[in-house]
């Protein structure tokens, strides 16, 4: 994927989460550089961290999504019993992470949210992490209630449906959020090239450091 494709994706994602795009959409991606304030409260109107609801991590903590703010997040949705697409999605997130220079890795969070409220308990998710050796502290697997799962999926543009046989039909989508929780990139499909995503993450992390000093 080249620069213009990426810019188009950027506009696509920003376009439909920003309320009144008075300006041409091309200007939107600049906003992340204007904002220097680090606030505990959710201060961006188009942040997904406006979603309320409590989630359980695979480490047994209870968190709100807004606690993820402060660093860029690579987020996707999966379920543990899924044998085909989901391991690929997890691996795609890992490929993005691994392609980052080590000094950048510590600034990125990888969040996998389960569709399966019944079976993917925090303990089951911990087993999953163990099984796939996702031991880096960057990883967080989340278990939530059905309402919050539906809300998050819808805001990310992930469609899913529980089938009668207990499996889920779902879109394969990885989303990159900036440190404020705004969607900056969406990667549709499996096994996509990671370079554009890595470039976006590096740029955001560099910008964050520039402001910090």
């Amino acid at each position: 994927m080249n620069k213009s494709t990426m810019a188009a994706l950027l506009m696509l994602s920003l376009g439909w989460v920003s309320a009144s795009a008075q300006q041409a959409p091309q200007h939107h991606h600049d906003h992340s550089h204007h904002v220097t304030m680090e606030a505990a409260s959710v201060n961006q109107s188009d942040s997904i961290y406006h979603l309320d609801g409590l989630w359980q991590t695979h480490r047994g903590e209870t968190i709100e999504l807004s606690q993820l703010q402060g660093s860029p997040v690579v987020i996707s949705m999966i379920y543990g019993n899924c044998a085909t697409a989901c391991p690929v999605l997890v691996n795609d997130a890992r490929r993005i992470y691994s392609a980052l220079p080590p000094e950048y890795q510590q600034h990125v969070k990888l969040v996998m949210v389960s569709f399966d409220n019944d079976r993917d308990t925090p303990a089951a998710l911990a087993d999953y992490v163990e099984r796939y050796q996702l031991n880096e502290s960057a990883w967080t697997f989340l278990h939530g209630n059905d309402t919050d799962i539906r809300t998050l999926a819808t805001v990310l543009g992930i469609r899913y449906r529980l089938r009668d046989d207990g499996n889920f039909d779902h879109s394969n989508l990885i989303t990159v959020l900036d440190k404020h929780g705004r969607i900056v990139e969406r990667i549709e499909g499996l096994n996509r090239p990671v370079e554009p995503t890595v470039a976006v993450l590096k740029k955001m992390i560099d910008a964050g450091h520039a402001h910090a000093h």
Binding site: N2, S4, T5, A8, L9, M11, L12, A21, P25
Partner: peptide, 24 residues
């Protein structure tokens, strides 16, 4: 015009992605 484009038999293919957004 775009990096995505290529030519076969003098015809241009490979248009960049569509943009969907909101505007007043």
């Amino acid at each position: 015009k775009h990096d995505t484009e290529y030519v076969i038999d003098g015809k241009i293919y490979g248009m960049p992605k569509a943009k969907i957004y909101r505007e007043e």
